Simulated scan of single mutants.
Amino acid sequence: MQIGEVAARTELSLRTIRHYEESGLVVPSARSQGGFRLYTEADVARLMVIRRMKPLGFTLEEMRELLAATDVLDSGEDVPDAERRQLLERVRAFEDAAQERVVNLRTQLARAEEFAGTLRERLERFDSLGADDA
């Protein structure tokens, strides 16, 4: 599929997809005769991993590291047991980090909702005071 369809499916901009390509996080699987980037389902899945990592504050280097580990694990190739254990441990570390960041985001969201509620209550109180003056 071409980059426009990939952008629609991943909800990423063309510019963002190109940036991830320039950063080496995703590489189009092929190019059309006209030079258009062509992507596969695997490329889309890779972009979705990146899209999910971004709001959790993972860096491009961390994204690259996780994708490299999962690429090896997903390859179907024989990987020595020690290397496989090391890669799985790295993926587990990313899972732990993601879970921790989700907890932190939930805490931030709860505080933001509390703040918005406080403002709403104040506005209602101010509005009712103004209505008494009329």
Rank of each mutant, 00 (worst) to 15 (best):
V103L: 10
R85W: 09
V44Q: 09
R90M: 13
D96G: 08
L47W: 09
V79M: 02
D71M: 00
R92V: 00
G76V: 09
F94D: 01
A68E: 12
L47N: 12
L67D: 02
A69C: 06
V72M: 06
R46W: 09
E83I: 04
D71C: 00
E100H: 07
D74K: 08
P55N: 03
E41T: 15
D43F: 06
A98N: 07
E77G: 12
E100S: 08
I50S: 10
T59Y: 06
V103W: 05
L88Y: 13
R64L: 05
N104Y: 07
D81E: 10
T59V: 01
R51F: 04
P80S: 08
E41P: 10
E83D: 08
R92P: 00
E100V: 01
V102M: 06
V103I: 10
D43A: 12
P80Y: 05
G57M: 02
R85K: 14
A68S: 12
D78H: 09
Q86K: 11
G76Q: 08
A45K: 14
A82H: 11
F94S: 01
L73G: 03
L47V: 12
V102I: 15
L60D: 02
F94W: 12
F94H: 01
T70N: 06
P80D: 14
L56N: 05
A82M: 02
Y39K: 06
T70R: 09
V103Y: 03
A97V: 02
G57R: 07
V102H: 04
M53K: 02
A69V: 04
L60F: 04
L105R: 08
E61W: 00
V72P: 03
R90Y: 06
M48G: 02
E41L: 11
T40R: 15
L66V: 05
Q86S: 14
R64F: 02
R64D: 03
F58H: 01
R51G: 03
D43N: 14
E65P: 00
L67I: 01
M53Q: 05
A93H: 11
R85V: 10
D96C: 11
P55E: 07
E89C: 14
D71H: 01
R46Q: 14
V44K: 02
E89F: 03
D78A: 07
A98P: 09
E95T: 11
M63T: 03
V44E: 13
L47P: 09
R92Q: 14
R46C: 13
F94L: 04
T40M: 12
S75P: 02
D43W: 05
E100A: 11
A42P: 11
T70M: 13
P55S: 02
A97E: 15
D96W: 07
L66F: 10
D78P: 04
M63Y: 07
V102F: 11
R90H: 08
L60I: 10
